[in-house]
């Protein structure tokens, strides 16, 4: 494989909670290929959103330790100074958030938001021109009557329209790396399909790579090239989507796949027996061992390393070669 755009090595994130120090991410290794769409799936609390936040270095205030390397086109994002990191945001890296309801400031119009994002790249661009550019981008993401929408406040738009506005913001930034953190979770099924269709139609326009975070394997299969499965703050399996889904190595991926077929209305995964591991007191061996139907003694004792598992694939399981 060619040189990846982003190369994450040993990324560890700890945060203070009332019960003690929680390990949000532990030793994540992950590559994001240039021009590819990487889907990250996992249950809530698996650390997938935190991973995205690490890439932007927008972390909550209770984070106590961040370690490892995040190499982005030759620069270690974790080692950059805050001004250099701020320089990256909105130019080379951009993000679409989960809930378009709260991701836009309710007291400012869509136009104000978009103009400030445009001015980020082109400071001093006259207001009329910036607004024109914003209008063109709204039209581009298929928002009807874009001129009128510029003067609208976020609450006057539907959820789907707001998410289109967020996508327009991301496209205006023209990033090399676009992070989409569960962009369709807060939307109903019809609107979700429309947004996914829009993202598919627009994928050629994002010059760099896209990270699409979801807990919905079906969506990821539809949209993504690569897949990364996360569980309990670790990466358990990676590889090309079609190959992983055709024959998953990790028992957790298999369980996910099995659940997908019987997911409930909201697409939440309901039927993996057992509970998500406690981030304050993680199990000593493999994080999935307590819920794994195949677990053996070694699984409860040793943390399995992420190992090569065939062409472009990795898996973190002691036993995957021997699984049925």
């Amino acid at each position: 494989m060619a040189e990846p755009l982003v190369s994450i090595r040993g990324l560890t994130l700890e945060a203070a909670t009332r019960r003690g120090v929680a390990r949000i991410l532990s030793g994540v290794d992950l590559d994001i290929g240039r021009g590819r769409i990487l889907g990250i799936v996992g249950e809530s609390g698996s650390g997938k959103s935190s991973l995205a936040n690490c890439l932007l270095r927008l972390l909550p205030t209770n984070v106590t330790r961040i370690a490892g390397q995040v190499d982005f086109a030759g620069a270690d994002l974790l080692a950059l100074g805050e001004p250099a990191m701020a320089e990256m945001r909105g130019t080379r890296i951009a993000m679409i958030f989960q809930d378009p309801m709260t991701a836009l400031n309710p007291l400012f119009t869509i136009g104000t938001h978009l103009v400030d994002v445009i001015r980020r790249r082109q400071p001093g661009l006259p207001g009329a021109q910036a607004l024109e550019k914003a209008e063109a981008m709204l039209r581009h993401v298929a928002i009807p009557d874009p001129r009128a929408r510029l003067a609208a406040y976020p609450h006057e738009l539907s959820g789907g329209m707001r998410q289109r506005v967020m996508i327009a913001m991301a496209l205006l930034a023209g990033p090399e790396l676009l992070l989409a953190d569960e962009p369709t979770t807060a939307l109903d099924a019809t609107v979700e399909a429309q947004i996914v269709a829009l993202l598919e139609a627009l994928r050629s326009e994002v010059a760099g790579s896209i990270v699409f975070i979801s807990h919905h394997l079906g969506l990821v299969a539809q949209l993504c090239d690569d897949l990364c499965v996360m569980y309990g703050g670790t990466v358990v399996e990676t590889g090309p989507v079609t190959k992983v889904l055709a024959r998953p190595h990790h028992p957790y991926t298999r369980a996910l796949l099995a659940c997908e077929i019987e997911a409930d209305d909201e697409g939440r995964l309901v039927s993996i027996p057992g509970e998500v591991p406690d981030p304050v007191f993680p199990p000593p061996g493999c994080v999935f061992a307590p819920r794994c139907p195949h677990a053996e003694a070694i699984c409860h004792a040793e943390v399995p390393p992420l190992r090569a598992a065939g062409a472009g694939r990795t898996a973190a399981c002691h036993l995957f070669e021997r699984l049925p």
């Binding site: 990256m88 130019t91 991701a103 400031n105």
Partner: peptide
């Protein structure tokens, strides 16, 4: 601490603008 402020920061809007304008 609200998400819309995080959005602005994620787009690299300057801290001054985020604080005093938004």
């Amino acid at each position: 601490a609200e998400p819309h402020i995080r959005t602005l920061r994620a787009y690299g809007i300057s801290e001054r603008l985020v604080t005093y304008k938004y």
